[in-house]
């Protein structure tokens, strides 16, 4: 599908819970206690458990699949920085906008924010602009 420059991508919103973090930890094999052990996490700079960065990126990736269809898993690129933690109880929204097109590739600014508008993830994603679609 082709998305014009300036198009706001349809967002994806998810609620983060400790149960979801624990389930992702089991699936992803990442048992870092920062994510799964409230007692340990309370001793860290975060003061409590936080979601895996890769879990939050999964929400961003779902948004890109929903907007670009097969072009996302079939040629997409993502470059992001984690700006803040997603915590149990947060409502995370993945957002994006097509900012330019370069050689048949749509370049998007992407981010994730929580329900307070705090920036969690910021970066750039690209996908073939005229992919096969969903």
């Amino acid at each position: 599908m082709t998305l014009a420059v300036g198009t706001e991508l349809t967002p994806v919103t998810k609620e983060v819970t400790q149960a979801k973090i624990d389930r992702y930890a089991r699936a992803g094999g990442d048992g870092n206690p920062l994510h799964t052990d409230p007692a340990f996490a309370a001793t860290t700079q975060f003061g409590g458990t936080i979601a895996h960065g890769m879990l939050v990126l999964a929400y961003l990736s779902e948004m890109l699949t929903a907007n670009f269809g097969r072009a996302w898993p079939g040629g997409g690129r993502l470059k992001i920085r984690f700006k803040g933690p997603a915590r149990p109880g947060d409502i995370v929204t993945a957002l994006g906008r097509v900012v330019r097109e370069e050689g048949g590739v749509a370049v998007c600014e992407v981010e994730c924010r929580n329900q307070r508008g705090e920036l969690l993830v910021s970066g750039e994603a690209t996908a073939p602009a005229a992919g096969e679609g969903a």
Binding site: V12, K14, K20, R23, Y24, R26, A27, G28, M54, L55, L57, A58, Y59, S61, E62, M63, T65, A66, G69, R70, W72, P73, G76, A134
Partner: peptide, 24 residues
């Protein structure tokens, strides 16, 4: 199920979410 991906099922071809490749 763990990431609640509702989009990949809409893509024809029985593909996995791309982040699943990175995670595994």
């Amino acid at each position: 199920a763990s990431v609640e991906d509702e989009a990949i099922g809409e893509v024809d071809g029985d593909f996995v979410p791309p982040m699943a490749i990175a995670a595994l």
